[in-house]
Computed example of a mutant assay.
Amino acid sequence: MTASKTILYIAMSLDGYIARLDGSVDWLFDVEGDGGDNGYAAFYQTIGSVVMGRSTYEEVLTLSEEFPYADRPAYVLSRAEQPPAPHVQFTTEHVETLIPRLKETSEGDVWIIGGGLLVQSVMETQLLDEIEIAIIPKVLGEGIPLFPKGTSPALLRMIRTQTLGQIISIRYEVRRSPASRGFITG
């Protein structure tokens, strides 16, 4: 059995934002892709569980009448206890213990959906294995950055690129030092 990976799979504007300042991702829906789902269905088939922050969860709920990840274990990180919700498990557990546990028990890879603070935390704890970014050809000018100020430095190795209409998708492997198991930073 292949070990599960932790993967950040996310869309980003050309200037590095994953959402507008109010959390909206409306700017994603009028870009010319490849005419299909831009590889999403194939990616989703590899996923065993999903992890997202509470703000991302709330934005996902505005995008569809049905929760799109109801067929997978879904964890929503929150700093405070939340009332139960269908299809998700709210948790105050830190990513440092949650992610390794999910990698052990998940029947597929662990998808880090967002947002920026979750990405920052997963990178800081050196738990991210791969990053796939779909670069959307738009400049937002301001918004929620993919990598907030203070994100741990990391060296990545490109393992794949794809052109999907006007979208460029880049898959990176997060490189780690064999001795320290930390990120290689130079």
Rank of each mutant, 00 (worst) to 15 (best):
L102C: 13
G39C: 06
E142T: 14
I159L: 08
P148K: 04
I99F: 03
P137E: 01
E58G: 01
A41N: 10
M123S: 05
K149L: 13
Y44Q: 15
V122N: 10
Y40S: 06
D34N: 00
W111A: 07
G53W: 00
V31A: 11
S13C: 04
I112A: 10
G53C: 00
P153G: 07
S13Q: 10
G143A: 04
V122E: 11
F29L: 11
I131W: 01
P153D: 07
I112Q: 13
E124L: 14
E130G: 04
L146R: 04
E142L: 08
P137Q: 01
L98K: 06
I112N: 08
D71R: 15
R157M: 06
A80H: 15
G108F: 03
P84T: 08
A42F: 15
G116R: 03
D109V: 11
P100C: 03
L140H: 10
K138N: 10
Q45G: 06
K103Q: 04
P86E: 13
G108S: 06
D37P: 00
R72L: 14
G35I: 05
K103C: 02
I47D: 07
T46C: 07
F147P: 06
P73C: 07
Q45S: 10
Y75G: 00
L14K: 08
E142V: 06
V51Y: 00
P73H: 09
D26T: 04
G23L: 02
V119G: 06
I113W: 11
R157V: 05
Y69K: 15
E124T: 15
T105C: 10
E104D: 09
E142R: 14
E93H: 08
T151S: 09
D30Q: 13
E96T: 14
L140A: 06
P137H: 00
Q89Y: 00
D15L: 11
L14Y: 10
S152V: 12
G48C: 11
W27K: 12
G33I: 04
Q82H: 03
I135Q: 13
D30L: 02
I18S: 07
E66N: 15
D109S: 13
S55G: 04
S13L: 09
I112W: 02
H94I: 06
V139K: 07
D26R: 12
G23K: 00
S24A: 11
K138I: 14
E107D: 15
A85L: 04
A19F: 00
A80K: 14
I136M: 13
S55Y: 12
A80N: 13
V51C: 05
S64D: 09
T125V: 11
E81G: 08
E66Y: 10
V51N: 01
L63Y: 00
E66T: 15
P83S: 14
G114N: 08
